[in-house]
Each structure stands twice: as C-alpha cells, then as structure tokens.
Design a protein around this nucleic acid. Structure first.
Lengths: 135, 135
DNA sequence: ATAAACTCTATAACAACTATAGAGTCAATC
DNA sequence: GATTGACTCTATAGTTGTTATAGAGTTTAT
C-alpha cells in the first residue's frame, strides 16, 4: 500500500502521514525500488489510533507516550491514567475560560443596539474603558 | 516613555509591542536620537484597548478592523456588531465541541480502574478499537 | 514517447507570540 | 575616559499541527 491509499483508508492527509513519520509517531516506512513508502495493515491501525487520539485533542507528544506504553504491555498503566487526568483537567479549564469569555462577549454585545455611528457604539466605548483582566 | 516602561505600564511584553507595530496594530513609534522607540499616553490607551480585545480572544486582524472603525467615528457600527456576533458564535461552537470531548474523555477514563498492566488497560484498548468521528 | 497521476524532499505559511544572538545606546561609577 | 550594567535595536528561529508549494523523480496507461 502506497501513501496515497493509506491516506484514503485512514482519512489522514499524505502530508500529515509524512509529518507523523518525521515526528516518530509511526515507524519509518519500508521503501519500494523507486523510493516510495510502503505500508501494511499495522500502519493503518496505528494511524487510526493516532487519529482517534487527535480527535480527543491529545498532543503529538502525549500520543507518542501512549504509543510507547502500548508497545510495552508489561508497563504499569498509572502513567496512562495520569496523562488522561491531566488532559481532562486542561479541557475543563478551557471550557470554564471560554464560558466566562462568552458571558463577557454577550454583555459587550448588548451594549450596542445598532445605533447609527461608531461614535455612539457601546462596544467600542466599553472596549476602550473596561479594565483588562488577563484571561 | 521608552518601550520598557510602556511594557510595564500595559503588561504587554516588549517583544509583543514590537510585534504589534510590525503588524500595524499600533503606529510606528517616534524614535529618539539613539533610535529608541518613544511613546506617549495615547500609545498606552491603544495598547490597553488591544489587550482587552485579546483577552476576549479577538484575533489581530479583527482588532485591526475595530481600530480602523474606531478611527472613523462617522462609520456605521453594523460591522462591529457583525464581527462580535460571528466571534460569539465561534466561542460557543468551541465550548460545545470541548464539552462533547470532555464527555468522551471521562468515559474513556472510567474504562481503566488502575489494573496492573498496560495490557489490561481499558483506555488503550478503547483508543485502539473505537471508531473515529473527526471532531 | 508521452501524458497523467502519483510520489519524493525541502521549504514556507498559518497565529500570536516567545526567545535568542549580536550589536548599539545610555547613565553611572571608578 | 574607560568600563559596567541595564536597556534597546534588528533579524532570525522556535512553538503546534498541520497545509501548501516548488521542483524533481516514478509509475502506469495510452
């Protein structure tokens, strides 16, 4: 299987697959006589694993760590759990942050009721006046 | 006021201020004899405006647009409103996405109850098995 | 032989900074 | 007057996870 077919089967773009190889998320592929990368079913499964992790917003280094653990089945899985917990924490923190942000944005948006000119626009006036609390 | 003081007053780093100048978010500063940037109170206010917008996750191009509108007080403020509405939509979409993500992560996390080895770890098994729905 | 479709490597772009190197400026001290 | 330290300058590279491009080579079909 050449890289184009692997791309179709997995839904990862060709460049992304090459990128994952460069980042050592997948092993360097065997090459054909003409220097084309050749893949098998194991590559498909590994790419789908990676894709699933990415859909959960796990970073490439995190995925690399999971793959390493996956290759050493005797290892403790505490590490996996710690990583997941940390990741869940991050996601929840981000949700809270965005929720606060959303409230501020809606409040700001209400301050302009489509008056005619920018001069009277509450949004811009508020953006100028309101103190900054770095979020 | 030199760039270091502006940085302290506004809480923006020196590099960020220079970056904003390069990106035309603030005007090119006057220079001293020794080629140091010199700022006044107007620069402070503009930087704080930018910082406030950034804390609301507005992009630099969006901020550039707001600043342009701010400079032409006769302009209609429909544009400001449209931008805010679009931005609020984006933030809300992202919150929904992360909330779904969080549910999946928690479900996954529950599948490992600290059994001994990675081989028995439900998290890794599920990551391998579960079909991917690109989020 | 040639064209189309594919692949290769290397490099740049995206966003919004942050960090670094190497040089220049300024005020104060010895 | 030389030197030290704190500051500033420009230019460049790094961050993250791709995507896009250029220019070349390979394979398959006509």
């Amino acid at each position: 299987m050449k890289i184009g077919e692997l791309s179709k089967v997995t839904g990862c773009s060709v460049q992304t697959i090459r990128h994952y190889e460069k980042e050592h998320l997948i092993a360097s592929a065997e090459r054909s006589e003409g220097n084309f990368r050749l893949y098998d079913e194991a590559a498909v499964e590994q790419l789908l694993f990676i894709k699933h992790c990415r859909s959960l917003d796990l970073s490439l280094p995190e995925i690399r760590q999971l793959l390493a653990l996956n290759r050493s089945p005797g290892a403790q899985c505490d590490d996996v759990n710690r990583m997941m917990d940390r990741h869940i924490e991050q996601v929840e923190a981000r949700i809270q942050e965005l929720t606060r942000l959303n409230e501020q944005l809606r409040m700001l948006r209400r301050s302009c009721s489509n008056r005619r000119t920018v001069e009277q626009c509450g949004i811009l006036r508020n953006l100028s006046a309101t103190p900054v609390s770095s979020g």
